[in-house]
Design a protein around this nucleic acid. Structure first.
Lengths: 218, 218
DNA sequence: AATCTTTAAATTATAGATAATTCTGCGCTG
DNA sequence: CAGCGCAGAATTATCTATAATTTAAAGATT
């Protein structure tokens, strides 16, 4: 999206690669050759290596010492793990954000939610979903927490996009609405409960992925 | 500790720097010149840069695009933030670990706890503390969660070591004992409650740091 | 005297080149 | 025929060198 011009080359490369991995353009387990990528971006391989370290930190690739990096594979267990972590952290964030939520923010969230309902493909829906969560959690003013949640969210998105690549119908998001209603009524506990269940929904619906989820050994 | 010989140079550098930052040998806000560090380790600056990216991911340094990296500063708010994140995630881990906790593990944890009570300095106590938490949480078998907890733990340790540099008396750790007792009795909820409060203890005791906590603007 | 501009020094970021390690395929041996 | 071991090729990791950017400091101008 925002290809910030003043970013360092390594950051730009990491962003592009991250998008590809999330979108499923790079299959889990596939190798990422540094020379190959360096050539594609018209750079040397040094910034490519730094981009790898970044992606590694986000959990999008795994790096073995002298054997290169490959796209991280995710088992169903790992998806559930991420979902549970998200649930725990998003509930925490919501509890801190709730006192600072204004009507304007909630209205904006509702608008985003409506946009998500009309989304034509998974990617658009996922984007709206991300925006919704960010909107209602950001006022917690805990940057480290928000970054952790963001990383977990991209991990979830990977799974989602891998599962519903082609067939997809926009589901009217009742959970989001329930969360908003509870927040408007000042019932933070109720909102948190729904949020926790909502986040784990991804991990619960197996959703017959059209792309093999497990890594294959070469 | 374990300076694995087969690690890449960048990893080794990042480990050494991490230890220094945690121990407080490098003050918050101080610049890390890549050339200086490269010279000290007898290497070029390229692996140093990769080490920086690793430390950045752990939240130990902050990196501004063309202005170098500096040791991350932590305000009291950030310490509380980390403590709350730890509480949320460790409770989650404990809930999953509890069913797989054996008597052998609990006995080992008790031994570690006793060792911690006898610790002469903060560093030794902190090490025992880390071991205790790792022991009872590891059986949850959620690697991503455990790594996240570990990173948060080092952030906490930084604060702890900055606060009690010289003056220190080993406190008999009642919380650890309470957690063990509850786990032995099969009362997972009780153990989780104590754990959550215990983790946030760090953030609550201000403990008059002997080193300025806030970053100073050069 | 204070501020803005310009210039120099220091430092970061990237490129190109070199050394070391792993992977692959083939031949040899049992 | 299976298994072990040895080149050759490919790839990773690091080093040296170059380009670009920022910090600072000195000089000029108002």
């Amino acid at each position: 999206m925002t290809t910030a011009k003043d970013d360092t080359i390594a950051v730009r490369i990491s962003k592009v690669l991250a998008e590809r991995i999330i979108a499923g353009a790079l299959e889990p387990g596939s190798r990422l050759g540094q020379d190959h990528i360096a050539e594609e971006f018209g750079t040397s391989h040094v910034p490519v290596r730094e981009a790898f370290r970044r992606l590694e930190a986000q959990g999008l690739v795994v790096s073995e010492p002298r054997r290169g990096v490959r796209v991280a594979s995710f088992s169903l267990d790992e998806v559930r793990e991420v979902a549970e972590m998200r649930a725990a952290l998003e509930v925490l964030a919501l509890r801190h954000a709730a006192p600072h939520l204004t009507k304007a923010i909630l209205d904006q969230a509702e608008a985003v939610n409506r946009a998500g309902d009309k989304a034509g493909d998974v990617q658009a829906w996922e984007e709206a979903n991300l925006l919704f969560h960010r909107l209602i959690l950001k006022p917690c003013a805990m940057p480290r927490l928000l970054k952790a949640i963001d990383d977990l969210h991209t991990a979830s998105a990977r799974f989602l996009l891998a599962g519903w690549r082609s067939e997809w119908e926009a589901p009217t998001d009742r959970d989001h609405r329930a969360i908003l209603d509870a927040l408007r009524a000042g019932q933070v506990d109720a909102a948190a409960t729904v949020l926790a269940r909502h986040v784990q929904w991804v991990g619960k619906k197996p959703g017959k992925p059209s792309v093999p989820v497990l890594a294959k050994r070469a």
